[in-house]
Design a protein around this nucleic acid. Sequence first.
DNA 1: TATTTTTTTTAGATTCGCCTAAATATTGTG
DNA 2: CACAATATTTAGGCGAATCTAAAAAAAATA
Lengths: 225, 225
Amino acid sequence: MKYSSSKENYIKAIYHLEQDEPVVSTNSLARQLSTKPASVTDMLKKLHEQELLEYEPYKGVRLTESGKMLALQIIRKHRLWEFFLVEKLGFGWEEVHEIAEELEHISSRKLIDRLDEFLGKPKTDPHGDPIPDAGGKMPLIERICLLDLPGGVAADLISVSNQSADMLDLLKHYSIEIGTRLEVSNRFQFDHSLQVIVQGNSKVTISEHLATHLFVAYAKDTPGK
Amino acid sequence: MKYSSSKENYIKAIYHLEQDEPVVSTNSLARQLSTKPASVTDMLKKLHEQELLEYEPYKGVRLTESGKMLALQIIRKHRLWEFFLVEKLGFGWEEVHEIAEELEHISSRKLIDRLDEFLGKPKTDPHGDPIPDAGGKMPLIERICLLDLPGGVAADLISVSNQSADMLDLLKHYSIEIGTRLEVSNRFQFDHSLQVIVQGNSKVTISEHLATHLFVAYAKDTPGK
DNA sequence: TATTTTTTTTAGATTCGCCTAAATATTGTG
DNA sequence: CACAATATTTAGGCGAATCTAAAAAAAATA
């Protein structure tokens, strides 16, 4: 089934708001979408008819299962495109959101699955938010410091707690950037430096000081919603 | 300036039809766009107001300079996305058109220029059609057999006159595919085999027989429209 | 050239997503 | 509890892009 960009935006907004409020109000939706409550009411009726959400006048809305599924597909597209923009095209974290807002409405399912493949099936986007898999399952992500990552576990770099030029310089030297898969292969007691496998290939050794500033997405395999 | 997808589709269609007819009729546009002549008339009036085309009732249309420029930007986006889909995501030539019809309406200029960079500024799309540069200039493309490519000239592979599994197998072995940049660096008289530089890096030697089936875009540097 | 055929435009309606203004329901408070 | 404040819906409209039916212009032809 194909939905307009506008409808997809409503569904996505409701999904996000449901994380906080159990039932989403007309007003908060209007605020979120920069539109007017009256317009929201109109649209809710249509989305209800399409069984994407439960709606009774004055009672707020809640997504149905198919509504949630649709939301997750859109979020998946959004985050994969963001990853692509940052990792492949060299955009900065901050500038990708707007572009991904457009790209997330491209409909081809095959496209997004191939893109996922091409990008190496990343677990998180450049902001560290988890990317739902093709089935709509959110990977359960714990953000932990590289220092605390158990050995033998590969995880994606999702944030860096220092944005200085010196830091970026050093990361560049190691070919490490947001989204890079890291695995700790050895810990040296003498200076607490770490031997790290970068992207499954090259092994590099980094200082404890650097490691304290690197945070990875530790994806538990328990399926979440 | 930002235009709706619908308007962009009109402009693109007119551009293509202008290649054949000097002045484009309401009827042929309606046919091209799978719409009704009455709808076309409505839209032509709007596009005329935006100075994208010259229009007088009953006299057909012709794009203005800014109309042509817009058309070329859309075509550029379409063909770059097609190239991306085939080269990076492994789609077949036949299935990319439809997806590119959606992608071509993504607005970010920076996105498309970075994509161009990322893809290696290709001169042609996977069908061998030329890709306008950022300034809207069409590269003048001549399609010639690799056998006839002058030495020292790098050109992109745009078609293969044999689609057999054996052929594809061999091309894979040489890491050659549509879009790959090739340069003939040596010709051996004994068996007429060619030494070829693939993507500016590796040198391989291929048989005359293989070369007869490879066609490259020989981009003359004369600026075309 | 007069008439028929074809093309194009106009007129009037529809759907989608949005708006404002007004009515109505719900919630909070004295 | 009654009334005020707030939230939501209804009613009526608008622009974009489409449609059908009918009118008008241009082109083809007898």
